[in-house]
């Protein structure tokens, strides 16, 4: 384990790149969702599998980095509260959650959903009932915010002064 390589690879199962991209997207949606909304969606999920904690929900901090000048070398901007959780389903699949905030219940639901989504047999249904609504809500909210910002954009018109 001494050196930078061993530790990380020992922890991970091999995963195809498109699988990684899909997982990143659903994990991002789970982070974005509010606790209340996710709980409601979770309540509607049938046949919840048995699961136990590999790592019980835990609150901590992640140091957030910025870039000097916005585009330069990194610097430490300040921390953000993060809650993480890892579960292992009865079928052996492991799910993780890393989410801003201090909500342990949300992290637990998210880790369980992350594990369940890795099962191709369940993915289509879960995507339709849990993730599609979240995806649409996020897009709608972003668009509404952008539309309001866009309304405050200055449309310059030039006034002619003096004589040519």
């Amino acid at each position: 384990m001494n050196g930078d390589t061993g530790a990380a690879t020992a922890l991970r199962d091999a995963q195809a790149p498109e699988e990684t991209a899909a997982r990143q997207e659903w994990m991002a949606l789970l982070s974005w969702a509010t606790t209340a909304r996710l709980s409601t969606l979770w309540d509607g999920v049938p046949d919840k599998p048995g699961a136990r904690f590999l790592r019980a929900p835990e609150c901590g901090l992640v140091m957030t980095q910025g870039r000097i000048g916005g585009t330069g070398s990194p610097f430490n901007l300040g921390e953000i509260t993060v809650t993480r959780c890892s579960v292992i389903l009865d079928n052996g699949t492991v799910g993780h959650a890393y989410q801003a905030g201090r909500d342990k219940a949300k992290a637990e639901i998210s880790a369980t959903l992350d594990a369940m989504m890795q099962d191709p047999a369940r993915r289509v249904d879960l995507d339709r009932t849990v993730f599609q609504p979240l995806r649409a809500e996020r897009a709608r909210k972003d668009a509404a915010r952008a539309a309001k910002a866009a309304a405050t954009k200055v449309d310059f018109f030039t006034m002619v002064r003096g004589e040519d």
């Binding site: 020992a10 922890l11 991970r12 199962d13 136990r52 904690f53 590999l54 790592r55 019980a56 835990e58 292992i88 052996g92 699949t93 492991v94």
Partner: peptide
Amino acid sequence: MTVQELTPGFSDP
């Protein structure tokens, strides 16, 4: 080695 073989940590961290 897969993540499935991970040992759990403290039960009440």
